[in-house]
Design a protein around this nucleic acid. Structure first.
Lengths: 109, 109
DNA sequence: ACAGAATGCTACATATTCGGAAGCAAAAGA
DNA sequence: TCTTTTGCTTCCGAATATGTAGCATTCTGT
């Protein structure tokens, strides 16, 4: 009840959604998932694919994504999406389409 | 041609997608969009909805999202999604469903 | 077996971003 | 007029990201 009497918003953000938005809202997290969309990549190749992300951050993101069950490390293959992680693909594919309509960084008048 | 001769990945990440992933991968960006899903919110209400985000960061995210044409500020209404921004809704709705399957932060063995 | 390359990963210093508190000027409401 | 609410700013300590170098191990070719 922290929104007082005049609560108008019918839908409240769930805890799991807040968590997903938190983890996805960390630098490179979505990009890493996106780069793994079609095949497994080694750490170094993933680094290149992301355009030269620093290894320390990549390592952190990968550990987080692994702990969340989104990404898995396969001994002689590299990193790849888990079955659960692959369910994000259609979502990111839509973001890909959507991104083409992005404004070219116009100013706020 | 920065991936050498042995290029295997058929699909290259587009510049617009890289940009979208960049902006979406900033803290609170997706959350802000999500909180605006059903109605316009004033700056202060948006702050509450996000669970106490600091105004400096919220201001920065809102300016970025406005510059991208995702969010707009309506004088006596507050912030709301643009028509373009609303196209992100089905995407985030899927993320909402997906988030329920998130692992409870298990350790990496 | 051996040399060289590639692997995942770490350490460290620097730069950027975030977070939290206080507060401002302008507008709206009473 | 007085109070509240608005969008927004500044400051600064804490957290996160970046960049470079390099380690130990495993694969690869000879």
């Amino acid at each position: 009840m922290n929104r007082g009497v005049g609560m108008r918003r019918e839908e409240q953000t769930s805890a799991s959604m807040a968590r997903a938005l938190d983890y996805c809202g960390r630098r490179w997290a979505l990009r890493v998932i996106w780069e793994l969309r079609s095949e497994a990549l080694t750490f170094r190749r993933l680094q290149e694919a992301c355009g030269g992300i620093s290894p320390s951050v990549l390592q952190r993101r990968l550990n987080e994504l692994r702990a969340l069950g989104v990404v898995e490390l396969v001994p002689r293959l590299g990193y790849r999406l888990s079955v659960f992680g692959e369910r994000l693909f259609p979502l990111l594919a839509r973001l890909d389409e959507w991104s083409e309509g992005l404004a070219p960084e116009r100013d706020l008048q």
